[in-house]
């Protein structure tokens, strides 16, 4: 009898554990994540969609969005190309210092973005290590679009590499052996056999890099100069409008950025699933 009671108690406990557990997780997420996100849309649309639309089509707002998409695309392209090359080199060749190189490539994500921006200033700024040589030329790097791209490249540097390298490591070498015995050169093997096999990883890596780039704030505000219609990216626009008290202006762009991020995130999930197959 006593034993039966124990079993029932256990059963009741496990029955309760699930709803309590789920409840704790959701309750914790509500003020921390869900409500903040929800308020962007609640506030954004509180004065009606017309207001929201007007705030969005403001030339400075549209410019900031375009600039963010452009700089993020360039940075993504650079980092994906670099990521493929670096992954191939580090996966196929052994050389002294190869493991240190892997760590160095991965380092930028560990560095605070404000530090990254500051570091770029110290390199390219007027009295910077390289910048001092550019002072009497027409070339200016800091406070231009180039500076934003450099900052984006720096902070998202290892993301594509980090996805492509494991995919390449796991690629069965017999495909490359087969291509070689069939008569393919190293380039043909890479082009027709290796690269298509990495398609999923390359797309995932690109999406991750783009998503991280388009939201970049800390380094961008240091190197861009935050000039409206010139070097003001979408996150900087949100910050500036908020400081000016233009909540609707900030809100419209914030909502768009959030939607872009959701879209990219969903695409990553889809590609991750495909990768798993």
């Amino acid at each position: 009898m006593a034993r039966k009671k124990d079993l029932q108690a256990v059963a009741r406990r496990t029955d309760l554990a699930r709803p309590i557990g789920v409840g704790v997780v959701v309750t914790a997420m509500l003020p921390l994540v869900i409500l903040p996100l929800a308020s962007i849309f609640i506030f954004g649309l509180s004065k009606g969609p017309v207001h929201f639309w007007e705030a969005l089509v403001n030339p400075a707002a549209l410019f900031s969005l375009k600039l963010s998409i452009m700089t993020s695309s360039v940075a993504t392209a650079c980092n994906v190309v670099f990521g493929i090359i670096a992954a191939y080199v580090l996966s196929k060749y052994e050389f002294p210092g190869d493991s240190s190189l892997t760590i160095i490539i991965s380092l930028p994500t560990a560095i605070p973005t404000a530090v990254a921006g500051f570091a770029l200033l110290l390199l390219w700024g007027r009295s910077g290590l390289l910048g001092q040589f550019l002072e009497h030329t027409d070339i200016q790097v800091m406070f231009t679009t180039s500076a934003i791209i450099l900052a984006n490249i720096f902070v998202t540097f290892p993301l594509a590499f980090g996805v492509i390298k494991p995919a390449l490591d796991n690629l069965d070498t017999s495909y490359e052996d087969a291509a070689e015995t069939i008569g393919a050169t190293r380039w043909q093997t890479f082009r027709y056999v290796v690269l298509p096999s990495l398609r999923g990883a390359i797309i995932t890596g690109a999406l991750l890099t783009f998503a991280r780039s388009i939201g970049e704030f800390g380094s961008t505000i240091m190197v861009s100069g935050n000039l409206a219609m010139k070097t003001q990216t979408a996150p900087l626009y949100i910050y500036t409008k908020f400081n000016e008290g233009d909540i609707e202006g900030a809100n419209a762009i914030a909502a768009v950025l959030a939607i872009i991020s959701f879209a990219i995130f969903s695409m990553i999930i889809v590609f991750r699933k495909r990768l798993g197959r």
Binding site: S174, D177, A178
Partner: peptide
């Protein structure tokens, strides 16, 4: 011509 153990047909 090599016929590999896993055949190594190009998956894509």
């Amino acid at each position: 011509g090599v016929i590999f153990q896993n055949y190594a047909l190009f998956p894509r």
